[in-house]
């Protein structure tokens, strides 16, 4: 019973990371495709300004996923990190490149430096979600079981590749929707159309990939496939489709505030649908939630810690997003860091 609740918490955190982190990766994806220095100047300016205050927060969700995995389901953690060694190691390298590239680009003024940091940030924004998605896809196929050694087959099969590409497309979609909203917020009328078009394109790509995925997973990931194409799983997926279509329509009418909500909703619904489709397994069809669960006392404590955290972290998180969308958060400008005349007088001599 307790372990089921913890599994739900884990799924909720994964969904949160898919939405928050996904938006962030998506912004990096569009940074990559923004073109040369001159052509990409405006979109990159917007991406920088929109991402900066919240990117760290968006990415901390990943740490929770890891912590809940190893505290709540130690066997799951051990199995995943053993079998999916390479994609996860590459994702970790990508995380370093991405964070460092983004953080270092901002205070750098020389063009050459900005280009290098920007490239590191943008390329790893594409690769990191792909590898994370591929690892998740590999788990869904049932190729991995406790004790499985690392192998390329576990994450380079058809389902994995499709899952990786779907993840990238979903991040691109989220990123474009949020950047459309940000373009309105920063009064950049030209970029509203720019990112809206990209949101529609990524939705198209998602649709194509989903159809291909449907065909590929039929044989390759039977268990999850069946539960996504019938019953509650299908209902959620259809709801997600409705959400995605609604997003496209809302963007057409530039109702960007609502479009953000429907976009996040549809991605979260897909994640939840995938989680439900795996029930009662954490890894189909070899490791169930109750088999993987850690000590019951620990799980209870984990829930208690989570509850306290929701109370402590929730309000500041809401405050951060509210202040951010209200435009109250601005980076320090170069002029703020200059010394005014006061206090400049020398002391000795």
């Amino acid at each position: 019973m307790t372990e089921d609740v913890v599994a739900w918490v884990l799924l909720a955190v994964v969904a949160a990371y898919a939405c928050a982190g996904g938006t962030d990766y998506g912004a990096g994806f569009w940074d990559l495709l923004a073109g040369g220095t001159e052509r990409g100047k405006r979109p990159r300016w917007l991406i920088d300004h929109a991402m900066a205050p919240v990117w760290e927060t968006n990415n901390v969700w990943l740490i929770f996923i890891l912590v809940i995995m190893w505290t709540g389901f130690p066997v799951l953690f051990q199995t995943v990190f053993t079998a999916m060694w390479l994609p996860l190691a590459l994702a970790a390298v990508g995380l370093v490149l991405r964070g460092a590239g983004f953080a270092l680009r901002k205070p750098t003024q020389r063009l050459a430096g900005r280009r290098v940091y920007g490239a590191a940030f943008a390329v790893s924004s594409l690769l990191t979600p792909f590898f994370l998605g591929a690892a998740v896809g590999g788990l869904a196929t049932g190729r991995v079981a406790p004790g499985t050694k690392a192998s390329a087959d576990a994450w380079s099969n058809g389902t994995s590749v499709i899952a990786g590409l779907l993840t990238v497309a979903a991040t691109a979609f989220l990123g474009a929707v949020f950047l459309t909203a940000d373009a309105r917020r920063f009064d950049a009328a030209d970029l509203v159309g720019y990112f809206r078009l990209r949101a529609w394109c990524s939705l198209g790509a998602l649709a194509v990939l989903a159809v291909v995925g449907l065909a590929v997973t039929g044989d390759d990931a039977r268990y999850v496939h069946d539960r996504l194409t019938g019953g509650i799983g299908l209902t959620l997926v259809l709801l997600a489709v409705v959400g995605a279509l609604a997003t496209a329509g809302l963007l057409y009418r530039t109702a960007t505030g609502w479009a953000r909500i429907t976009a996040v909703g549809s991605v979260a619904l897909v994640v939840v649908a995938w989680g439900l489709a795996q029930r009662p397994y954490l890894i189909p069809t070899s490791l169930t939630v109750s088999e993987a669960a850690g000590a019951t006392t620990t799980l209870r404590w984990l829930l208690l810690v989570t509850a306290i955290a929701v109370v402590l972290v929730g309000p500041p998180l809401v405050l951060l997003y509210r202040l951010d969308t209200a435009g109250a958060l601005q980076p320090l400008a170069e002029a703020d860091l200059r010394r005014t005349a006061a206090g400049r007088e020398p002391e000795n001599t």
């Binding site: 760290e56 740490i63 505290t71 620990t298 810690v305 955290a309 972290v313 998180l317």
Partner: peptide, 25 residues
Amino acid sequence: WGDVFGLGFGVEAWAFFLEAILIAL
């Protein structure tokens, strides 16, 4: 040992989340 000593990391993760939010503010 994850379920024996991992909870400390759980506390750390939430504290760190709070820190990331507050530092952004």
